[in-house]
C-alpha cells in the first residue's frame, strides 16, 4: 500500500517558503560547532520522558514539521502507548482522522483513500524521496530515527567520559542546537542560497529555512511559546520517536543491575567460602 497525504498542498505552500536549493559545499564533518548540551528529563539512569513535553513536541511536529518531514515508522497507536506522549485513545483517533491513507485494492481492483486508523503509520508528506527533492530542493529527512542518526562525534576525551556520565543525548542536543542556532545576521557569500547554521553537521549552510518563530504555536498548558521551548519540545518528541522503549529499557536495566549486584555479592561470598581452604 502506498500512502499519500492530504497535506501535500500545505507542504507545497511551505515549500515555497523554504529555500529551493541544496545545502552549500559540504564541509568535512567535525567542523561544525559542538551542540549545546541541555538538561533532558530522559537522561540518566532514572530518566523518563516528560509526557506534557512529548505532547507539545507532537504539536510542533504536527503543526509545523510534518508539512515536509515524514514520521513514517510511527503508527498513530504509538501516541497512546505507555512510555510515550500517552495521548488518550479519543485524542489519537481524532489525530488519525486528520490523515488519509491509500488503501486497497477494493473488490473492483481500485485503490481508494480512507481515513487513517490507529494501526496506520503516519503517511509521509511526499510519496517518495524523489518527489520530496523535486519539491524542496533537498530531502527533508524522516523524523522517525533522526534523534539517533544525528549524533556528532564527541572526540577525545569526551567519548571516554561519556561512558561514566551516560551521556547519549547528543541527538536531541544537536537537533535543539540546530533549530535554535540560525544566525540571521549572517550575510551569505555570493551564490550561496542556504541558511547559515554553525551547528549543521554537513556544512555551514542548511537548506531548511529557520522553521520556528516565537508564538507560532499556541500551547494549552501555559508553557512558554518561544523558539527555545518549541525546539526543546520537538527534540524530545523526536527522541521518543527514535527510542520509544527508552523508559522500559532504563527501568528494566535498573532492576537487572540491582539483581546482578546482589547475586554477584552472594557468588563472591560463595567463592570465598569455597576457596577458603586453599592458598592460591
Amino acid at each position: 500500500m502506498a500512502f499519500f497525504s492530504s497535506r501535500s498542498l500545505k507542504s507545497l505552500v511551505i515549500a515555497a517558503a523554504v529555500a529551493l536549493v541544496p545545502a552549500g559545499s559540504a564541509f568535512a564533518a567535525g567542523d561544525s560547532k559542538p551542540p549545546r548540551m541541555q538538561d533532558w528529563s530522559f537522561a540518566g539512569v532514572f530518566g523518563t520522558y516528560d509526557r506534557a513535553q512529548l505532547q507539545r513536541g507532537y504539536q510542533v511536529f504536527a503543526e509545523n514539521c510534518s508539512a515536509c518531514h515524514a514520521l513514517s515508522r510511527i503508527a498513530f497507536r504509538n501516541l497512546m502507548e505507555p512510555g510515550g506522549p500517552e495521548f488518550s485513545e479519543a485524542e489519537v483517533r481524532a489525530i488519525a482522522a486528520n490523515y488519509f491513507v491509500m488503501d486497497g485494492p477494493d473488490s473492483f481492483g481500485d485503490m481508494f483513500e480512507r481515513e487513517a486508523r490507529l494501526s496506520d503509520r503516519f503517511p509521509p508528506p511526499f510519496p517518495n524521496q524523489e518527489a520530496a527533492v523535486a519539491a524542496m530542493g533537498a530531502y527533508p529527512p524522516d523524523f522517525s530515527l533522526l534523534a539517533k542518526a544525528r549524533a556528532p562525534t564527541r572526540g577525545f576525551p569526551g567519548f571516554v567520559i561519556d561512558i561514566f556520565t551516560q551521556y547519549q543525548e547528543n541527538g536531541p542536543d544537536y537537533i535543539y542546537s540546530l533549530l535554535t542556532g540560525y544566525d540571521e545576521e549572517h550575510v551569505n557569500p555570493e551564490g550561496e542560497l542556504g541558511h547559515y547554521n554553525p551547528y549543521f553537521m554537513a556544512g555551514e549552510y542548511i537548506a531548511m529555512a529557520p522553521p520556528l518563530f516565537d508564538g507560532m504555536h499556541v500551547y494549552q498548558d501555559g508553557s512558554p511559546e518561544t523558539i527555545d521551548q518549541y525546539a526543546r519540545d520537538v527534540s524530545a518528541f523526536m527522541m521518543w520517536a527514535a527510542e520509544p522503549h527508552l523508559e522500559q529499557r532504563k527501568e528494566m536495566g535498573f532492576r537487572v543491575m540491582a539483581f546482578l549486584l546482589i547475586f554477584g555479592g552472594l557468588v563472591y561470598m560463595t567463592k570465598r567460602r569455597v576457596w577458603s581452604a586453599v592458598d592460591h
Binding site: V45, A149, A151, Q168, M257
Partner: peptide, 19 residues
C-alpha cells in the same frame, strides 16, 4: 554488559547506521 545494554546501547555503534 548490562550497563551498556540498558544505559548506553548505542554508545558502541555508529549513528549513521540508523539511516
Amino acid at each position: 554488559f548490562s550497563y551498556f545494554l540498558f544505559f548506553l546501547p548505542n554508545y558502541l555503534g555508529h549513528a549513521d547506521n540508523y539511516i
